[in-house]
């Protein structure tokens, strides 16, 4: 009995010795990335196009990399909070930034964004989205420009809200305001669903966002699309019968 115990102890020690040796060797062997979940920090709220896009890709990437890819929403001005959260994280590949179209933010926040941007190395790739103008009134870009060129300024007050301050839609809104000369107050929202509700409640009269938010509303004609300036809009949402640039006779 005693002999058996000794033998077991000796054998156990040998195993422990081998285990210790393996542990000692482990740091020298490079672990394959990823060995733990990866976090995508998204500078938008939940429910918007970027959020949906990120979650579709995160799901597939999880399968491809055999590791969970988790989306964390961190909306805020210009995506700066999200960007800072990433660049202050270890550069180990486990915290990544979902980059929105950053240049408008960079141009408007020149003192802040370049330093944030410089914290990033290369982006990986991305999807391309197209945004358009929609509103409950038909205020076409061409019409508004004509008023501006004729020296007339419309006196009605329109508000339109964009997705999140300093994201790409706000410079688009600013550009629209500048080109049309309309008296517009821009009010930022943090997520798309809230803007749709505000539009339907008539809190605002125009919104700039991605088309995906409104197909059902357009179909039931509770909202109307203003003129669209891209060539092949219809292939995304054929059911909405959105006018193309050619159909709208928009020339500029």
């Amino acid at each position: 009995m005693a002999k058996g115990l000794v033998e077991m102890t000796v054998r156990g020690t040998a195993w422990l010795g081998l285990a210790a040796m393996l542990v000692a060797l482990a740091p020298q062997a490079k672990a394959a990335w990823p060995e733990k979940p990866i976090k995508f920090v998204l500078p938008f709220g939940a429910g918007g196009v970027a959020d949906v896009t990120a979650r579709i890709l995160a799901d597939k990437l999880s399968q491809k990399l055999n590791q969970r890819v988790v989306v964390e929403n961190m909306p805020g001005p210009g995506g700066i909070a999200a960007a800072r959260a990433v660049i202050t994280a270890p550069a180990d590949g486990y915290t990544m930034a979902w980059l929105p179209t950053a240049p408008p933010s960079a141009s408007r926040r020149s003192r802040v964004f370049p330093s944030t941007l410089s914290g990033f190395c290369d982006g990986f790739d991305g999807g391309h989205l197209r945004s358009g103008l929609r509103g409950k009134r038909s205020i076409g870009v061409q019409d508004a420009c004509r008023c501006h060129q004729g020296g007339e300024r419309q006196s009605w007050k329109n508000e339109y809200r964009d997705n999140c301050r300093w994201q790409h839609t706000e410079p688009g809104a600013e550009l629209f305001k500048s080109l049309t000369g309309l008296n517009i107050q821009i009010v930022p929202y943090k997520n798309s669903p809230d803007i749709v509700v505000a539009l339907l409640r008539n809190d605002v009269q125009l919104m700039i966002d991605f088309l995906r938010r409104l197909p059902d509303r357009l179909r039931t004609k509770s909202c109307a699309s203003s003129r669209v300036r891209v060539r092949n809009r219809r292939r995304f949402f054929p059911e909405c019968r959105l006018p193309t640039r050619q159909a709208s006779k928009v020339t500029r």
């Binding site: 896009t53 550069a91 930034a97 190395c121 290369d122 391309h128 197209r130 790409h168």
Partner: peptide, 12 residues
């Protein structure tokens, strides 16, 4: 107006 999304990681 075309928007794009991408993925970025910290330097290094």
């Amino acid at each position: 107006m075309i928007s794009w999304n991408g993925v970025g990681v910290p330097k290094d």
